[in-house]
């Protein structure tokens, strides 16, 4: 006989003090937490492929038109880019501190670090918006009125700017989504929804935020730093 009528005690009660809610279809808190964490990592895998398509396009075109990419890259504002990189790295630090505070169950500290992260994220987006505006003023947006003054191989530079806007735009949209989620998390943290035993949303959001940060760490050199040591130099 291949079967036996055995059963595992079903956790219908689902009362786990301090663990937040264990949803009805999970057997245990651990199973729920594991599932969420794996889910987040799988999602980040998806995100890598999402950005990957664009990186692919970038590498192909840069390989073909190195001159155009090098000279168009000089049009980016190195100092704003570097400032934003610093801002994002700091925001990753505050986010990590937020997760740490959550694990210690320190509510106000958690709220504080989340707000710091929010402010830094906002600063990044503000600077980015200023940069876009600047590009607009200088007609550096691909299209009819595009011009790239003093660029070498100007005929191919629209590709660089297309990728610049595509990649930073996609990145910024991730920042905006993160910004929105942060607002909700701050509210929830302030209301005391999280505890030292249960802070999965904070932890998972941290993963997301670091991921977005890492993407920028790649974007910055690829878009801002081509040929800075060459004839263009710093400016």
């Amino acid at each position: 006989m291949a079967s036996e009528s055995a059963a595992v005690a079903s956790h219908n009660a689902h009362a786990h003090p301090g663990y937040g809610e264990v949803r009805h279809h999970f057997e245990s808190y651990e199973q729920q937490k594991d599932a969420s964490t794996i889910g987040m990592w799988v999602f980040l895998l998806t995100e890598i492929m999402f950005f990957g398509g664009m990186f692919m396009a970038y590498f192909v075109y840069r390989q073909w038109y190195p001159t155009a990419f090098a000279s168009a890259s000089l049009k980016t504002n190195l100092w704003l880019g570097a400032f934003n990189t610093t801002v994002l790295i700091c925001s990753s630090l505050t986010m990590a501190m937020a997760v740490h505070s959550a694990s210690l169950g320190k509510r106000l500290l958690l709220v504080g670090f989340l707000i710091a992260t929010l402010v830094l994220g906002g600063a990044f987006l503000g600077v980015k918006a200023y940069e876009y505006h600047d590009k607009w003023e200088h007609h550096e947006i691909p299209g009819e009125h595009f011009e790239c003054e003093g660029c070498a191989d100007a005929g191919h530079t629209p590709l660089f700017f297309a990728l610049y806007f595509g990649m930073t735009g996609l990145h910024a949209s991730h920042m905006i989504i993160g910004f929105g989620i942060l607002v909700v998390l701050i509210w929830q943290a302030y209301k005391g929804k999280f505890s030292a035993k249960w802070y999965t949303p904070i932890e998972l959001f941290g993963l997301y935020w670091h991921f977005v940060d890492v993407v920028w760490i790649f974007l910055f050199p690829l878009l801002y730093l081509i040929d800075r040591s060459g004839q263009g130099g710093l400016h």
Binding site: Y65, I141, P158, L159, F165, G166
Partner: peptide, 9 residues
């Protein structure tokens, strides 16, 4: 914003 436009290479 042309990514695949032969006009810009």
């Amino acid at each position: 914003i042309g990514f695949f436009d032969p006009a810009y290479g």
